[in-house]
Amino acid sequence: MDLFTGLEGQLTKMKINVCETTEPFNPRQGEDYEFQVLVNPEQIKQKFSTVFDDDQPDGTTGAELRFRVQKPQSFETELVFDGTGVIANDLLPGSNLLGTKQVESVDAQIERFKAIVFKYNGDTHAPNLLQVQWGSFLFRGKLKDLTLTYTLFKPDGTPLRAKAKCVFVASIADSLRAAQERSESPDLTHIRIQKEEETLPLMAHRIYKDPGYYCEVAQANKLKSLRRIPVGTTLYFPPIEKNKG
C-alpha cells in the first residue's frame, strides 16, 4: 500500500488526536481531544536523519563514519483555516444538511487547534502527545514548530483565512524504544501499531511465523474485539514461550 490514500475512493480527512501518556498510548476520542482538518494538506515532507562521527587525523584523505545516533523522525505540513463559508466544517452541527454550511471563525478554529496540539498540559508538564493519521499515514509525536500566516481579511481586519505551517517530531517512550531496538526474534517482546488493512493473525504470522498465536496476543492486550481494533492502537506481542507451554 502507498504511504497515502489514493485519489480514488472515499474522501478521508486528516485527524490529530491527543494520546494517552502511559502505555498503550492509545488516541483519545471527543471534541476536546481530536481535531479534524478543514482541507487535507497538499503535501507532507518527511525527514530522517542519522548522525555520524567523521573526525579524521591530519594528513589523511578519508575517515570511517562511526554511527552516533538516529534523530527522531519528523514531518512538515501546512494546514488551512477558512472562515468564508466556502468550505463546510463536517464536525459542526448542520454543516451538510440541505446544503447549509455552519461557519466557524478562523480565530475559533485556530484556538481549537492550538488547545490540542500546542497548549501546555499541566498534568504531564508538557504539550500533548499526538497521533496524526491520514489514510495509511500514521505518526505519533509532538508539535515542534507552529507558524501562522493570515492571508485574507474582512474590511474591519477580522481574519477570514489562515495557513499553519507545522513541524511534528516523533516521540517514543523509553520502554517502547528499547523493545524496538532489540533484534527481531519470536523470543522477544515486540511492539506494533495497528494500521489499516492489517489483521491480528497477519501480524502474529510475521512475528511468530504462526498466525495461530493471535488469540494469545488478543488476550495479552485485553482486546474486546478481534475484528474492530482501532487504527493506531499499540499492540504488545510477548515472547512466544509465554503463550505456548
Rank of each mutant, 00 (worst) to 15 (best):
F237A: 04
S171G: 07
Q180T: 01
K165V: 00
A218G: 10
V231K: 14
D210N: 15
I193V: 14
R192D: 03
T233H: 07
Y208A: 10
H190V: 00
T233K: 13
L176G: 02
K242F: 05
S225Y: 10
D174N: 08
K195C: 07
R177N: 08
P201G: 09
T189R: 05
T189Q: 08
Y208R: 13
K244E: 02
K222P: 00
Y214W: 15
E184P: 09
D174Y: 02
R182N: 12
H205W: 12
P238G: 09
A220T: 14
E216H: 14
F168Q: 14
D210V: 12
R227Y: 10
V167L: 13
Q180G: 01
K242R: 11
E197Y: 15
L235K: 05
E197N: 11
G212T: 15
H190S: 03
I240A: 07
S185F: 09
H205S: 11
L226F: 15
P230C: 12
P239V: 02
K165P: 00
K165Y: 00
T199H: 04
E198P: 04
L176M: 07
K222I: 02
T189I: 02
L188W: 08
I207D: 04
T199E: 05
N221C: 10
I207E: 03
N243T: 12
K224Q: 12
S175V: 03
G232C: 06
T234E: 09
R177Y: 06
C215E: 08
I193N: 07
K165N: 07
R177K: 05
Q180M: 10
K209W: 03
E181F: 01
V169T: 11
E198S: 06
S183L: 10
F237I: 04
R192V: 01
A218I: 05
L200K: 03
S185R: 02
I229C: 02
T234W: 11
V169G: 01
D174K: 09
R206F: 00
S225V: 14
A220L: 10
R182P: 05
N221Y: 14
L200I: 08
P239R: 04
F168S: 12
H205L: 12
Q219I: 10
D187C: 11
C166Y: 00
G232E: 09
T199N: 03
H190G: 06
L235S: 04
K224T: 14
L188P: 03
Y236T: 13
K195Q: 13
V169L: 11
A173S: 13
L200Y: 00
Q219E: 07
A218F: 05
V231R: 10
S225D: 09
K165I: 02
A178W: 00
Y214H: 15
K165E: 01
A218P: 06
